[in-house]
Amino acid sequence: MTPAVGSGWRTLLYKELLRFWKVAFQTILAPVLTSLLYLLIFSHVLENNVSVFDGKVRYTAFLVPGLVMMSVLQNAFANSSSSLIQSKITGNLIFVLLPPLSPANLFAAYVVGAMVRGLVVGLGVFIVTLFFVPSLLSMPHPFWALAFALLGSAILATLGLIAGIWAEKFDQLSAFQNFIIMPFTFLSGVFYSIHTLPPFWQQLSRFNPFFYMIDGFRYGFFGLSDVPPFTSLVIVAACCLLLSLLTLSLLRRGWKLRR
């Protein structure tokens, strides 16, 4: 019997999923717990002190979509970047480079694998936080939220792919994470509405693509946002497209992978 021949990218995706699933305790449960701690502490301290959207939304409720999105973004980034750096350092990346996988195949498998991890963790955080804010289940615009979750996870998965290919050591990767990803996420309005910021910082926030991801995602939950959701969608989609094209061209040139 001749074995069925198909595209190898599905197997690479399967491998990427299996990789984090086998250590789900660390890749899914741990980030869910972290987000839960954020929620408990910040809501306890700030619930009665911070007013968001002119008091139309409780702070704890406001915080949840931010935390969900932050988990989606951070875990999407962590998955593609750590998978690649581990493969590079242990040398087993060669197993992926020897088969006839095209640049688009590699891109699709790593990015979709990382998106799934981000979305699964995000869903986990959302489910856990529902115990604290059950009203969030009745979202006015769930498809807007989904669109931003998909685009946001794709962007961070792609960034993770770039960082994983670029980094040669774990500390270079953590520098990328600590000096780029973390500040952009924390300063994007996860914990606050940018309308509470001084004008200068409000303006600066508008140059942060992460702000649009989180603001647009939050619109899905409350029908309220700092900027019109359509504007956010266009900006986020454009970022996603540009980064994808950049990454595909890096893969085509074999940047850092094929010398």
Binding site: P3, A4, V5, G6, S7, G8, R10, T11, L12, Y14, K15, F95, V96, P99, P100, L101
Partner: peptide, 9 residues
């Protein structure tokens, strides 16, 4: 997995 990379299931 290696087999799958070559598209062979």
């Amino acid at each position: 997995i290696q087999s799958g990379y070559f598209g062979i299931r």
